[in-house]
Design a binder for these strands. Structure first.
Lengths: 102, 102
DNA sequence: TTGTTAGTTTGAGAACTATCGAAATGTTTG
DNA sequence: CAAACATTTCGATAGTTCTCAAACTAACAA
């Protein structure tokens, strides 16, 4: 495994290493599966997520940026609201990484 | 996913979130595969690992403790030397975690 | 015993992180 | 335009992490 890959993977793990951030990611994952079933994308309101986790809006905003910069999610704006989506390629990369090792 | 599982998984990811520690883990993984092929366990000398990574013995010692407390590896002593082994169950847990999601 | 080897512990400093409250930004609604 | 809304940015703080050098322990060797 190339050194740059190790660095990249460590950043992915870093992004999932915080309990709240992992929970946030899992929520998004769950939502995106629901939405796929419904054939549409999902609006992920920070307000909704805040009511699930016990942290404030600035922290959520921070965590989303971390997930995004690790390449786990993509975000865009729709009016006032933020739309988040999981990047499926990264999920496949990680799954492949561990499948090869175990 | 139960809250306790989220916490547990976040600790596993935490353990792999440092570049040097991930590299260390991958080295051990590689060694343990070689050893499986040879039908014996492997002696993991810190001195050897130090020459690959660019950090000192105290840091390696610290990283090994992190990997151990996250449940990724087990260690024991053989004379002066430390023997490390990957805990296969954790590898399976992680693989299952991502396989289910992607 | 004296010295060497393999690794650990301690203590400290620099860097990073998670979180918050307050203020700011941009968007829609009345 | 003004108010309400959703999110972001800023500044601060408390806590964590990585790393090293120095000192230490335990096992082996001469």
């Amino acid at each position: 495994m190339a050194a740059s890959d190790v660095t990249r993977m460590s950043k992915v793990f870093r992004a999932l290493s915080n309990k709240n951030r992992l929970q946030l990611f899992l929520n998004l994952l769950e939502e995106s599966r629901l939405d796929l079933a419904k054939g549409r994308t999902h609006d992920c309101f920070l307000a909704t997520i805040i009511s699930n986790l016990r942290i404030g809006a600035p922290s959520i905003s921070h965590h989303l940026r971390e997930l995004e910069s690790a390449g786990l999610i993509e975000t865009s704006k729709e009016g006032k609201q933020l739309v988040c989506s999981i990047r499926p390629q990264v999920m496949k990369d990680i799954a492949a990484f561990f499948a090869a090792k175990s």
